[in-house]
Structure formats: C-alpha cells, structure tokens
C-alpha cells in the first residue's frame, strides 16, 4: 500500500519509494526515509493535498507525490 491509502489518523512505516530526481531528493531531505513512521493527519478540503506528520513536524504533499511512497501498517 502507499501513503495515499491511509485514512486520516492512521499511521504507517515507510518501506520504499519509487521515484527519481528532484522529488526523490526533496522526499529524503524532508526526512521521509525508510523505516520512519508517518501519520496521515488530514486531507485538504478539496480532496488533495494531504497533511502528514513525521519526525515531530507537519508536512503537506500532493497525492501524486504520496503515491510513490510505499508503506506498511
């Protein structure tokens, strides 16, 4: 499953991510590394983007970006 499949309030651990280039580096720089626990906080009023919580802070990302992040619950 990917980060997109979580429901608000649920948590998951990052397994891998399938993307290249700048987005991959952004994801890593923001602390989304394998093994880290991520909580899906909420979905924006219009259904996209998502708000997630990791490493003690809140981050917003689009569903298209979240869908490359594989997680397990």
């Amino acid at each position: 499953m990917t980060l997109c499949d979580l429901k608000p309030g649920e948590k998951g651990k990052v397994v891998s991510f399938g993307t290249e280039g700048v987005l991959r580096h952004r994801i890593l720089d923001m602390g989304i590394t394998t093994g880290i626990e991520i909580q899906l906080v909420k979905v924006a009023p219009l259904g996209d983007p998502l708000e997630i919580r990791l490493r003690g802070y809140n981050l917003s990302l689009r569903k298209s970006e979240a869908s490359v992040i594989e997680i397990k619950q």
Binding site: V22, L23, R26, I27, M30, P49, E51, Y57, N58, L59, S60, L61, R62, E65
Partner: peptide
C-alpha cells in the same frame, strides 16, 4: 516546458 513543481511544503 511543463516542469511539474513539487509541493512538499512544511505546515
């Protein structure tokens, strides 16, 4: 050239 900006943004 249709570059897609990414949206990883701290709240």
């Amino acid at each position: 050239k249709g570059a897609v900006s990414n949206f990883l943004m701290e709240l």
